[in-house]
Every structure is written in C-alpha cells, then in structure tokens.
C-alpha cells in the first residue's frame, strides 16, 4: 500500500511551487475549450472528433515541445529543431521516393541522425562553452541548408509502408456525432498521436524519476551549485542536447507521418512554436523550472486558439498569432508576478 503510493507522492512534490504555473495552463486550456464548446455549439466544437483533430495535426509538436522544455529546464535553448524537422522530412521523402529506401530502415537512420546532430551540438555547448543560442543557430542554418542539398524540390511521400503507418487509425467507440449528411462520424486518433503521447510520458518519467532528469533540473537551477554538489554538469548538458536530438528526430518522424512529404520550407518557425508551448506550459527561459506535461498543454492552448479562429470562419488567420502573443504575454507577466510575490514573502 505504502509502496504503491510513492510515485504519486513524487508527482505531488513535482507540482509544488513553480509547477503551479502548469496548473494555471491546464485551467486556462479548459476555460478556452469550454468557451469554444459554448460559442460554437452548433458546429461540433465539443465533439471528441474535433478534440482529436487537434492532436492528429500536431503529433510532432507534442514531442518536440517536450524536448524543448527539457532543454529550457537545463538553462539552454535549441532553435535548430524546426530546420531539423524539415531535414528529416526531406530525408524520408527523398530516400524513400527517389532512392526506394525501406521505410523502417529510414526511421532508424533518421533517429540515429538526430542523436548525432544533438551530440555535436551538445559537445559544443558543454565542452567548448559556446552559447547554446549560437550553437543551435548554426545548427539551424546547417539543417536547413542540408534539406536543400538533399533535394530542392517538394517531394510527396507515396511509400506504401510509410503511408500505412501514417494512415493507421485507432478508433474510439464513443463520443462521435452525426454529420449534416446523416453519417455517423467515429472519433479516431492516428497512430502518430499514440506514439507522441507514449513518448511524452516517457520524457516525463525520465525527468521525474531518473538521476539524469533530476540533474537537468539541478544544472538549470544553478550550474555552479550543481557542480559543487557532485553533478557532472558537462556530461549532463551533453546528454540533454543528445536526448533532444533524438526527440527532434522522433518528432520529425511524427511530423512527417502527418505531412507526408518533404520540402525546403517545411516546419518554418517550428522551434518558436515549441518554445511558446514550453513557456505557456510554465518553463522559464532562465532554466531550472518547467514540466513536460505543461508543454503538452501549451501545445493544446495554441491549437485551440487556431481552432477558434478557424471555426469562426470570418476572422483573418493573423488573429491566431495575435491572440497567441497576448496569451504568452499574459504568462510572462504571471511568472513575473509570482517571482515578485515570492521575493516579497521572504
């Protein structure tokens, strides 16, 4: 009985203090969503199908936001992830379509590429003490350049194995609705969403229950302190960027399952969406604070806003960015207020 309750105590400890911000994100998401359900009650906003659509179109972002959160917690940043995603999509498209590569072999190759990419960036950050922003800025240009080197053309994926994975649906036997034509719409998620959620939970587990994960929090909270307490800070940072490289490749794969094609301009600004999700989810860019579950809700908040604008039908797309800007400002101000209140209390 005692033993069974331990993981939940760990969870509870994790929701103390700054993780209160995560709670606010969750509440905010629910509030926006419920508002949407009421405002668009004639348009099936509240149906499970509509909710699943949000997940179905964002499996890549869910994973990459989780990886970004980990990097931010360590006190770093990785702005190369968007370009990396474009490069991985192009690798899939070019090698499967133009070189008849095996889909499963390609998944493996992409994941290994991601690990190597992260390892190099991590080595530069950890052992040569170069600013992560600069290192990953270089990584960003490099990956985007490599994408064009592989192929400057837009390539659509038709590989049968890959498309089978991309279109694999997991249906849910409840919560659907009958559309205008009188046909029952069964809610479903793609396989990629299931993979994304499993990956998300795995990252959460690593961050919460492994010494590596705790060291990442320690390094972000105070690198010098962490070193004096016996944490190998350089190795921890190397591992952070390497792990993030893996997650970026995995996210790139999931992104590709959704977009099924490669193009030089794919996933532009994706890194900024990931950072936005992490920040809305309660991560601080100064490091030490954040939660990968929070970043998932950050993704949901962002996609809900887009959905809002789309459901309205008359609003210009620009509104979704403006609303996002407002919500992010709201969060940053909230964080400052919390920091201020804490200082006042002391």
């Amino acid at each position: 009985m005692m033993r069974a309750s331990k993981p939940w105590q760990g969870l509870k400890a994790n929701f103390y203090g700054n993780n209160f911000l995560v709670l606010i994100t969750v509440v905010l998401f629910i509030a926006i969503y419920v508002a949407g359900v009421f405002i668009y009650r004639d348009k099936n906003f509240g149906s499970l199908n509509s909710f699943f659509d949000m997940l179905n179109s964002n499996p890549g972002l869910i994973i990459i936001a989780a990886g970004m959160t980990m990097v931010l917690i360590s006190g770093g940043i990785d702005i190369s992830v968007g370009s990396q995603v474009a490069m991985y999509c192009m690798m899939f498209a070019y090698f499967m379509e133009n070189r008849q590569a095996n889909a499963y072999a390609m998944i493996l190759i992409v994941l290994v590429t991601g690990v190597v990419f992260g390892l190099v960036q991590g080595a530069l950050v950890a052992y040569l003490n170069i600013q992560p922003f600069i290192v990953t800025l270089a990584g960003m240009f490099f990956a985007r350049g490599m994408t064009a080197m592989i192929s400057p053309q837009t390539i659509d994926i038709t590989n049968a194995d890959f498309m089978a994975l991309a279109l694999r649906r997991i249906q849910v036997p409840f919560g659907g609705y009958v559309n205008a034509a009188g046909v029952y719409q069964t809610p479903f998620v793609y396989l990629s969403v299931v993979l994304a959620l499993v990956g998300l939970l795995a990252v959460y587990a690593v961050m919460t229950w492994t010494r590596f994960g705790r060291n990442v929090y320690a390094v972000g909270g105070g690198e010098q302190s962490a070193r004096l307490m016996g944490v190998d800070t350089k190795r921890t940072k190397l591992a952070v960027y390497t792990f993030n490289g893996f997650l970026t490749a995995f996210g790139g794969f999931l992104f590709c399952l959704f977009s099924t094609g490669g193009a030089v301009e794919k996933a532009q600004g994706f890194e900024m969406q990931a950072i936005a999700s992490a920040v809305i989810g309660g991560a601080l860019l100064t490091g030490g604070v954040g939660n990968v579950i929070g970043s998932f809700f950050g993704v949901l908040v962002q996609t809900t806003i887009v959905k809002f604008i789309n459901f309205n039908g008359t609003l210009a797309n620009g509104w979704s960015n403006i609303v996002l800007a407002v919500i992010m400002s709201f969060f940053i101000i909230l964080q400052s207020v919390f920091a201020y209140v804490r200082r006042r209390r002391e």
Binding site: G10, A13, Y16, G17, N18, T208, W209, T210, R211, R214, N215, Y217, A218, G220, G221, G222, S225, A226, M229, G230, V231, G288, V289
Partner: peptide
C-alpha cells in the same frame, strides 16, 4: 544549493537513493 529544487531534493542531489534506475 539549487533554489528551484525542494529542500529534500537538495539534500540528495547527485546521490539520490534509487531502485533500479528510478529515484
């Protein structure tokens, strides 16, 4: 020490008791 971590965790950073790989 790391201000962002709990008091308990600060006492055990770098030397957390584990079962298998889990803290």
């Amino acid at each position: 020490l790391c201000p962002n971590l709990s008091v308990a965790e600060n006492l055990f950073v770098g030397r957390q008791p584990r079962r298998l790989a889990f803290v």
